[in-house]
Design a protein around this nucleic acid. Structure first.
Length: 207
DNA sequence: CACCAGGCAAGTA
DNA sequence: TACTTGCATGGT
């Protein structure tokens, strides 16, 4: 799968350059939301220097919601961002590296304890911000895997994640590119209404 | 006009 | 446990 997708689309360069905190914010803002909308919200925050733990900790939930409006679900996500920085300040003195120095299971548990951070957001943060190998499962992963008859349709998040992690070396660079390629492939070939013509993964005969 | 986008938590039975 | 629903903007 990886090689077929990489041959077709090339490296996806996901989350290059942005600091860990901006990645964490982006991971929450992109929940069920197009990334281009997230970029608009991030740009607005960056413009007024709000992209730091301390600034988001200080700003009001209402004001923060206005800033992130383009990302959609802004009232909900404003609270989620406040929950995130609340955890960072309360448990890590606002020092993200302190969280990222823990082992994967510990930081995953901590992230999941934040209301508004579920398994995909937690794994995205660990993979793309902490750069540790926690495989990210998303809607496209479910669809691609089930439509190619590799898993049952009602497979759980953890079951699907275990399948990938038991089959691959724990390499954060590989996990990064693999997930990004699944999203890239899904955008063209695995929408809700099946439209699988010319899917790079059609060797399983599901088109 | 309908549909979609890098989910999650809370409510219902 | 197993569904459903609310959350919301911006692009195609």
């Amino acid at each position: 799968m990886f090689n077929l997708m990489l041959d077709r689309f090339g490296p996806q360069h996901w989350w290059p350059g942005d600091g860990p905190f901006e990645m964490m914010v982006g991971a929450i803002l992109t929940q069920n939301t197009n990334w281009t909308n997230v970029e608009k919200a991030l740009a607005r925050l960056k413009k007024d220097n709000l992209l730091s733990v301390s600034e988001i900790y200080e700003v009001s939930t209402e004001k923060l919601a206005e800033y992130i409006r383009p990302a959609g679900y802004y009232n909900l996500k404003s609270k989620r961002l406040k929950n995130l920085v609340g955890m960072l300040v309360d448990e890590y003195e606002g020092d993200i590296s302190m969280l990222f120095n823990e082992d994967i299971d510990s930081q995953r548990m901590t992230l999941l304890s934040v209301k508004g951070i579920g398994p995909e957001t937690a794994d995205s943060i660990i993979l793309y911000a902490a750069k540790k190998p926690s495989f990210v499962i998303d809607t496209y992963t479910y669809r691609i895997m089930s439509r190619h008859n590799m898993v049952d349709e009602q497979v759980t998040y953890d079951e699907l994640q275990n399948l990938f992690m038991e089959s691959l070396e724990p390499d954060h660079g590989l996990f990064n590119e693999f997930h990004a390629l699944i999203v890239r492939t899904g955008k063209d070939y695995c929408k809700k209404v099946p439209k699988c013509d010319n899917c790079p993964l059609n060797i399983w005969g599901s088109d």
